[in-house]
Amino acid sequence: MSDRPAKARPSPARTTEVGTRYAIVPVPVLSLATVARRSGLHPDLVRRFVALGLVDAERDAAGRLVFDPTAPAALARVQRLRTGLCLNYASIGLVLDLLDRISLLEAALRRAGTRSDLPPWT
């Protein structure tokens, strides 16, 4: 018997591949039909939003679009920007990128403890 501890190896049964990511627990995904139904949009419009890069989707082993559970909320955000501000799709992409960047910066400020520098409406 050796004094060295045995090397721990990950069990292939516990690690599953989801797209290009690896997870210990399988990540639930939604089909195109489910996302379209939950968001109240036609599946062709959802496909268009994916093609434009406004919502993220991956392909399963059969080549069908699959979405994260947050996709209906992202689609609702796109629709609100489209109808509420009358933005075209290129503008929506830019606004979404800016809103994501603002969220990251606000989170960094909160972690740094300098939240008092933010305006009162944030």
Rank of each mutant, 00 (worst) to 15 (best):
A13F: 14
P72V: 02
A107E: 12
V35A: 13
R38Q: 10
Q79A: 12
L87F: 02
S2L: 09
A62V: 00
L96A: 08
T114H: 10
R77M: 11
M1T: 13
R115H: 15
S31E: 00
T34M: 12
T34Q: 13
R14D: 15
A36K: 00
T114V: 13
R38H: 08
D100K: 15
P43Q: 04
V35C: 00
T70L: 14
A62G: 09
A33L: 15
R38P: 02
L96V: 15
L98E: 14
T83A: 08
L105G: 02
V18P: 01
M1Y: 07
G40C: 04
L75C: 07
R80N: 09
L30D: 04
V29F: 14
D60V: 03
R37H: 09
A33N: 10
A71M: 13
R47A: 04
A71P: 00
A36V: 03
A107D: 14
A6C: 06
S2I: 07
L41E: 14
R82W: 05
G84D: 10
R21A: 10
R37F: 00
L52R: 15
E58K: 03
L96W: 07
A6S: 13
L96S: 13
D68Y: 03
A76D: 14
P10R: 11
T114M: 11
A73F: 12
V27I: 15
